Simulated scan of single mutants.
Amino acid sequence: MITIKQIISRIEQRQPVLNKAELTTDQLTLSINGVGSLTDANSTQLSFLADPNYITSLAQSQAGVVLVTEQYREQVPSPTVVVVVASPYLAYASSSQLFVRHTTKSNNIHPTAIIAKSAVIGADVRIGPYCVINEHVHIGDRSCLDANVIVEAYSRIGTDCVFKSQVVIGHDCIIGDYVRLHAGVSIGAEGFGFAPSQDPSIDGWERIAQLGRVIIGSHVRIGSNTCIDRGAIDDTVISDHVIIDNLVQIAHNVRIGAGTAIAANTGIAGSTTIGKRCVIGGAVGINGHIDITDDVTLSGMTMVTKSIKSAGSYSSGTAAMPTAKWRRAAVRFRQLGDS
């Protein structure tokens, strides 16, 4: 069980609790065992109001504790405990981490793991079944590698990292602290670099050796089956606090600035630079060798073919409509291009 006092302590790592002094000892020691929606939470669960559209649910909520802004504190029904914060959604995010189920592991290093003698393994590192740790790898303290993780030679992994099963780290890559890589992530695979022969249909393509690395900062989260290719000459760089969803392709020599968020099925072609604090929606396609400045938002399915030099929101995907109407619209769009 988690007490409200513990919840408040976690919240205050990110923002102040505005009514902390008003809470009684009985309220602070109340035990909470999970998180629920306003409509479904019971007296032992935490809930929150982040969207005013759900204000009618707040009045009927049976939650044990609710996170709200000052504006709505008087609308929380008794005996629910009110915790007042500037950002309930951020407070919910912080609190949710207290309720994650942790699996106890008796052995730090599984006997089936293959670890090179030259590898340096930090304190309290956990390495799961059938992992392969190659020559001269460094793994920082308290990092955890689940089953079948492969780390190739000369790569460095920071402290407190979590790598889920089937993650592959290519040679010479550098990964910071507090990095979470979910199942099937590929870091540092060979980039898609080939030089055409005089006739590719006869002579094929000449492979370009990819000699760069992937460098990932700290507090980065990368979703399942995302691929980040190593640089051809220079490095591919993912800066601190970047979050990346599942099934994203990041090609060689891409550089992504701190705090940027990238949703699923996005593809970023090689040698593109993306600035800080950008938000990239699902299924966005970004051309190679372009620059996107800081604080840019790209809505879902946007196609970016040229550099973006001004902060703001950009879109290019068309919303679904009946097929007959879409065909007529497409004809008119082509006609505009001919005028």
Rank of each mutant, 00 (worst) to 15 (best):
S316E: 06
V65H: 08
S87V: 06
R73V: 11
Q62S: 14
V76C: 02
V35I: 14
M303P: 03
S316L: 11
G285K: 04
T69E: 01
G285C: 00
I139E: 02
I244F: 02
V85G: 03
I133L: 04
G176H: 01
S87A: 13
P200H: 03
S310I: 11
N253R: 00
I268N: 06
F333A: 13
G285A: 01
V81H: 00
A258S: 08
I308G: 01
T104G: 14
T260V: 05
I216G: 05
A86E: 12
E12F: 06
I157K: 10
R334S: 05
G217C: 07
R207F: 05
I115E: 00
Q62T: 13
I169Q: 04
P16S: 08
I286M: 06
S313T: 15
A209L: 15
A311R: 11
Q45W: 03
V82Q: 07
I174S: 06
L211R: 14
T297D: 05
R327E: 09
D177Y: 03
D295Y: 05
A59S: 15
E70F: 02
S94A: 14
M301V: 13
H241T: 08
D177P: 02
H289K: 09
H289E: 07
I169V: 10
G275H: 11
T159D: 10
S87N: 14
T260F: 05
C173N: 07
A91Y: 00
A119P: 07
N42A: 09
V125K: 12
S186I: 12
T69P: 01
Y178G: 09
I150V: 15
G217S: 00
S315F: 10
S186G: 11
S307L: 10
D235E: 08
T80E: 07
Y130K: 15
Q71V: 14
V65Q: 00
V84G: 02
A283M: 11
T226Q: 07
A21P: 04
E206M: 13
K117F: 09
Q27T: 13
R73A: 14
H171W: 12
L181F: 00
A91N: 08
P196Q: 05
V132F: 01
R156F: 12
Q198T: 12
F99R: 08
C278M: 01
P322L: 11
T236F: 05
T112W: 10
G281Y: 03
V220L: 05
A41V: 08
Q210T: 10
V254D: 07
A183K: 09
G170R: 10
A330V: 10
G122V: 09
S339V: 13
G288W: 06
V304G: 04
V132W: 02
Q210A: 04
V137M: 02
S271D: 00
H289A: 02
K306A: 12
D245G: 03
I133S: 01
E190Q: 14
S9F: 04
S299I: 13
L30A: 12
Q27I: 11
S299C: 12
I290T: 06
D160E: 11
D146F: 14
I187D: 09
H138F: 14
T44W: 04
G122W: 00
A330D: 05
I244K: 02
T302Y: 03
I292K: 00
Q6P: 00
I2D: 00
D146V: 12
K306V: 11
L38H: 04
Y178S: 13
P77H: 09
S87M: 10
T104M: 13
L46T: 07
L90C: 06
